[in-house]
Computed example of a mutant assay.
Amino acid sequence: MTAIAPALRPAPGIRADQQVVVAELADNYAGSHTLPMAEAVVAAVARDGARRVTVASGGGYGLAVAHAAWRNGLRATVVQPARWPGEHGEAARAFGAEVVDADGGYEDAIADSRRRAGASGIADGNLDGPYHDVALRALTVALVRAVGQLAEPPTAVWVPTGGGLTAVAAAAALDARGWPSPLFAVTASGANAILASWPNSYRDLPRSAVTATRVNRPLARWSAAHGRAALTAVHLRHGRVYGVSDRSLRAAADRLAAANVLASPAGAAGLAGLQATPDADPGTHLVLVTSRPAVAA
C-alpha cells in the first residue's frame, strides 16, 4: 500500500485572527479519505487468502475497495443502501465488483454485507469489521503525514464525523505527534447518534430519530460503529461535537470551492463547524476535507 500524504492548502479565514489550513484527504480517484483504508484492508484480505471481499458503502469506500480488489486479483461485493444508492456504483462495476442494493439505510447495508460474509466465507471488509485495526492504522498514518506538514500544533482540528472512525484516527495522529490540539467532531444536526449522545456516554438512536437528506447522508447514523471511541477521543482532546445544517454544509463547500478546494457538503463539515463557532480561538485551525463530489462518467 502507498500511504497518502494529503496536501495542506490555505483557505479563507473565518476571522482576521484565524488562519484555516485544509488537509485534502479526498484528493484521489475515489474522492474519499477512505482510500488508504480500502487499500490496506484489501491487502490484508489478500494475505489471509480470501478471494472476495464485501463492504457496505454509499460513497468512495466501495469504489476504492473495488479498485484495490481488482489490483490484487480479488472480487468485491459492494452493498449500497437502497434508500440512497451510491454515486460510484458504475465505476465500481468497471473494476469487476458486484454492486447490490440493500433495503433501508447505511446501517442496513452494513448488516446485509456482514450476512453475505458470514454465509459464504467472503471476507468482511467493513470498517467496523475484523479488519478495523488495519483500517484505523492506515488512516492514522495518512493523518500523521498530513498534520506533520504543519510547523507547529494547530489551534484546533475540525473533523467531519459519521461513524466516528475519522475522529478516532485524528486523535491518534495528534497523539503520535505529541500535540495537544483540541479535536472538534462535526456532523449533521438531528441525524447522528454521536451528536445526540454528546457530552454523555454513547447510545444508539431510534431509526425514526434520524433524518437523512441527500446533503447530510454520509454523516447520518442512528448507530455509529465507532461512536464510543470517538466520544472518548473528543473528551480526551478537550473538544466537543457540533451539529450543522444542510445549508451550513453547502455554504462550507462553496467557501472551499472559492479557494479551489473541491469538497462535497458532507466532506466540508469541518469547515461548517468552524464557521458556526464565532468564539473559536484565534490561530491556525486545521480542517479535514474527507470527500469530493462524484465526477460523472
Rank of each mutant, 00 (worst) to 15 (best):
V65E: 02
W84Y: 13
V45M: 07
F95Q: 00
N72M: 12
V55R: 09
A40I: 10
V45G: 05
A46R: 15
E87G: 12
Y61D: 00
A92P: 00
L35Q: 14
A109S: 14
Y61L: 14
G73L: 02
D48A: 14
P85Q: 10
R47W: 01
E98F: 00
A66R: 01
P36L: 08
T77Q: 05
W84C: 03
D128S: 13
E98G: 02
N72E: 13
S57W: 06
G96N: 02
R83A: 15
G129F: 04
N126G: 15
V45P: 10
G104A: 08
R47G: 09
P36N: 12
A109M: 10
G62K: 07
R83K: 13
A117S: 15
A94C: 08
D101W: 09
G59C: 04
I110W: 10
A46G: 07
D128K: 06
R83L: 13
D103I: 12
A117Y: 03
A102K: 09
V41L: 06
G105Q: 13
E24M: 05
M37K: 15
V42D: 03
A38C: 11
A92M: 00
I122C: 13
A97S: 01
A109P: 11
A92E: 00
V45E: 06
A69M: 01
E90S: 03
N72F: 04
L127P: 04
R83N: 11
A66E: 01
D27Y: 06
A30L: 10
R114C: 04
H67A: 14
G31T: 02
Q80A: 09
Y29I: 10
V100T: 14
A69Y: 01
A119M: 10
L74H: 08
W70Q: 02
V41W: 05
A68D: 05
V45S: 05
